[in-house]
Design a protein around this nucleic acid. Sequence first.
DNA 1: ATAATTAATTGTCAAATGATAATTATCAAA
DNA 2: TTTGATAATTATCATTTGACAATTAATTAT
Lengths: 143, 143
Amino acid sequence: MDKKLFFQNLIHFIGTVHASTHFLMKNARSDEITPQQHSILEYIFFNKAVTTSQVADCLNISLPNASRELKKLLNLELIVKVVNNKDRRTNTIRLSVQGQNLMHRTFERIEKNFWERSGEMSEKEMKAIISSIKILEKKIFIP
Amino acid sequence: MDKKLFFQNLIHFIGTVHASTHFLMKNARSDEITPQQHSILEYIFFNKAVTTSQVADCLNISLPNASRELKKLLNLELIVKVVNNKDRRTNTIRLSVQGQNLMHRTFERIEKNFWERSGEMSEKEMKAIISSIKILEKKIFIP
DNA sequence: ATAATTAATTGTCAAATGATAATTATCAAA
DNA sequence: TTTGATAATTATCATTTGACAATTAATTAT
């Protein structure tokens, strides 16, 4: 298989994932927070504990701006911040209980959108999808 | 398989795709355009011909703001706009040659980032990935 | 033919995000 | 222990994006 063609397929797939995401996100994001703040909370949600630098690096935000947004989230009490003992310049950031609740509520709305679009799904279909996801997560979209 | 668990896996996967996208996008986006304008160009790129309303709907932008961004892209000569004969209130928007070139250059940088991260990939691996993508595109991320 | 819709545009203001310089605190190495 | 590097913060300004009202032109329905 041609590498060029392979990559084209991949890019196309990423495009469709983004399009689907836009659809699933409709009316799903809490209006307490901005889109970027949602991305940050989502990132923390999946990674459990992160530093300011990690947020900046992984979401392509400058460190000062990441720090600013995290401060806002802290003021909203959606995250908690603890200074690391190992290296006291860094801090560990986690979701607060409120932050977790907010994300859960958001995911519920997304789930609603999802099932409305997809309709019923057989056991077999679900299993095929999950195993496809596992393959892609192993080889391409390393979590 | 539990529907709830199935959806959790799916959400997690979408999260990893987004994270990977952020990584692949590093230094890839042309600095002639803003992030949102890039999304719009990407959307037009994959859908060939779209209307202003479609851009607004699919990218979750209000119609006035979509119109504004498209006007900027038109001034940059990255898109072309033709009034539809069927319904003269609407217009068909496509990438200009310049717009196509810009996207191709962007994808080349993304591709470079991708192979740097992934290293070599066997024929067998590529085929497994493509067929996983096809399954997901058929059932979940309908293009 | 008129009225009611619809797609798109323009203009305006507020808010979010991006970029950059300067500062503080901590750590690591010479 | 001084020097240099790193993580994070604060402050500031420019740009981008979001929200909304008003308008125009074309279409559809009555």
